[in-house]
């Protein structure tokens, strides 16, 4: 099964803004039945301010296609057209807390739909994929223009990534050689423009390239609970880090004791009797919880033992 984030699942199970928008000012249709996903985006625009006041979608496609469509409507409602057009497919994916790599093309579909809808609103003809340069992937009707835009927009450096983002090459894969040629050219241009490190660029003559580093998850670190000593040290360090800011206000904070999840501190100086001391305690508590990674209660004490 795909690993969808909770936000993707939520936007799929309870999609916002799905349905037909009556009296839409612009409609964008992208994708097709044969491709397995298609999106119709409908927007309502307030003419004087050029603001998108409402948006709805209809989507034929998988869970992440529906979630991406819904996310797109949430992202653009309230924005001016110019602001909306600055959105990238990555913004849609980020809004959803990320998409599996194989599903990135769903976010690209959202990006395309927005541009199609805006073109329709402006009375322009949307420059459709099929008319920008040579048709490269015949299975999914993806042309060079679309591939180049996606390579540039997402810093793609491999054929696999191009397929994940645009679907190109995901069918019969006879276009693999053409994809390689486009990727080599565009990466080369990106290097020349200074937007891509030379060693990352795709090259037909070099087979060994640095691997893009994924996030390393240290399972041990997540699972092993802190020892009492480690916990107390962390608490100490955190309080030491907070003290200077309290001292600037003429106050101070001293760690007295730690008992389970209860942290006893003594506020001194200007903090004593200050009506903001409870806020200070809360602030200290928040910092400690963040640093130690477990629930803690900070209790102010007045006497030393």
């Amino acid at each position: 099964m795909w690993e969808y984030t909770d936000k993707v699942k939520d936007y799929f199970f309870n999609p916002k803004n799905s349905g037909i928008l009556e009296d839409a000012s612009g409609v964008g249709d992208v994708g097709a039945l044969s491709c397995g996903d298609a999106l119709r985006l409908m927007i309502k625009v307030d003419e004087p301010t050029q603001t998108i006041t409402d948006a709805k979608f209809q989507t034929f496609g998988c869970g992440s296609a529906i979630a991406s469509s819904s996310a797109l409507t949430e992202l653009i409602i309230g924005k001016t057209i110019d602001e909306a057009l600055e959105l990238t497919n990555q913004d849609i994916a980020d809004f959803l807390g990320g998409l599996p790599p194989e599903k990135m093309h769903c976010s690209v579909m959202g990006y395309e739909a927005l541009h199609a809808a805006v073109a329709n609103f402006r009375g322009e003809t949307w420059v459709d994929d099929h008319e920008e340069g040579a048709l490269i992937c015949k299975c999914f009707g993806i042309d060079e223009g679309m591939i180049e835009r996606t390579i540039r927009g997402n810093d793609l450096t491999s054929i696999e990534e191009i397929t994940n983002y645009t679907k190109a090459g995901g069918g019969c894969s006879t276009c693999a050689e053409s994809l390689e040629a486009v990727l080599e050219r565009v990466n080369g241009e990106m290097v020349a423009e200074g937007t891509l490190a030379p060693e990352m660029a795709f090259s037909l003559t070099s087979y060994v390239r640095p691997v893009k580093k994924g996030k390393i998850v240290n399972l041990d670190e997540k699972k092993t609970p802190l020892t009492t000593l480690q916990k107390i040290r962390l608490i100490e360090e955190t309080i030491e880090a907070i003290r200077p800011s309290l001292q600037r206000d003429g106050g101070d904070c001293e760690l007295i004791d730690v008992d389970g999840n209860r942290v006893m501190v003594k506020l001194t100086g200007a903090c004593v009797g200050c009506h903001l001391s409870s806020a200070t305690i809360e602030g200290v508590q928040a910092k400690l919880v963040e640093a130690v990674g477990m629930p803690l209660i900070v209790i102010p004490v007045t006497q030393m033992h």
């Binding site: 699942k9 799929f12 199970f13 397995g36 996903d37 034929f60 496609g61 998988c62 869970g63 296609a65 529906i66």
Partner: peptide, 23 residues
């Protein structure tokens, strides 16, 4: 409609099946 979307909703209802869908 598309198979993966159907399966995800079925799964929420506790039903396991499969689909010939691309996705």
């Amino acid at each position: 409609i598309e198979g993966e979307a159907i399966l995800l909703l079925m799964n929420r209802d506790g039903i396991a099946a499969s689909s010939g869908s691309a996705c």
